[in-house]
Design a protein around this nucleic acid. Structure first.
Lengths: 142, 142
DNA sequence: CCCATTTACTTGACAACATGAAATATCCAG
DNA sequence: CTGGATATTTCATGTTGTCAAGTAAATGGG
């Protein structure tokens, strides 16, 4: 079963595992630098793209809506987010980043060096190749 | 600052973010299939390579040793792991997988399809290119 | 129009994970 | 042998996550 995979594929899988681990670690660290948790940073990143219904946040985070309530609560209590009513549907609450929240999200993005610094190792051409291979892997490519 | 990054690099960074998210999701799901949490699955994976001091587990997981205590407790209470004394240093406790634990770890590894299935999209040659690019990114290559 | 159903969100109870500080036991250097 | 470092655990606390139950608002069939 497991042993039927060729060594090359195994090696790539291992490399991807390493990348995932490193990415996560750096993301947590960057978030912590702004005294946010990883989850809070992720939500703030989503909110910086525009006001979003709680429901939609839950879908994007792939978690239960009741979980999002708490995360937005904590962002709100620190002045990074606020809840607005959706005029079109009064059941919906739109979570939105405040100015402070947007500013923090920007600085956070700026300090997310992962893959920026390592990617500097690669030439433009190589980055293009990498991009296309990753897209194929993700099934995003044609 | 942030805007100084070229679009290509940004695209690759985004793709890597997507890969990380998908990897994590699939890992959690695979673990859940064996009624393990992600953290438990990770520890069990480490233990399947051999008995390991608690301290070392904490280093590998990049977390506090006191956290590992609880995770191993839960693995132990379900018969997947056990603690042994290190004859060489009586302060140390070695966490080790039981037979049941090793078996579960094996089945888990087998169901970790991520990057195996998507990699099937790529030819051998492309996988080689991908491997080398990833290695360069990780600074593993010469 | 009205009622039943569905949808959006919150609350509360609970488990896992994570940190930090303090306690215990052991090792080791001087 | 003593003092300091190391390995682990325990405890208090906070965040993340689930699930079940509850409230409020939209929606569709009679």
């Amino acid at each position: 079963m497991t042993s039927r995979i060729d060594p090359l594929t195994l090696e790539v899988v291992e490399l991807i595992g390493t990348i995932v681990a490193r990415y996560h670690q750096e993301y947590e660290e960057a978030a912590a630098k702004h005294s946010l948790t990883g989850a809070q940073a992720r939500v703030l990143g989503l909110l910086s793209r525009g006001p979003t219904p709680m429901r939609r946040l839950a879908q994007q985070l792939k978690c239960e809506p009741s979980n999002v309530t708490g995360i937005v609560d904590r962002l709100e209590s620190r002045g990074f987010a606020e809840r607005r009513l959706d005029p079109a549907d009064r059941r919906v609450k739109l979570a939105a980043a405040t100015d402070a929240g947007r500013e923090t999200a920007d600085r956070l993005r700026g300090s997310l060096d992962f893959a920026r610094e390592p990617l500097a190792e690669l030439s433009d051409e190589e980055r293009t190749v990498l991009r296309d291979l990753l897209k194929r892997m993700l099934g995003t490519a044609p």
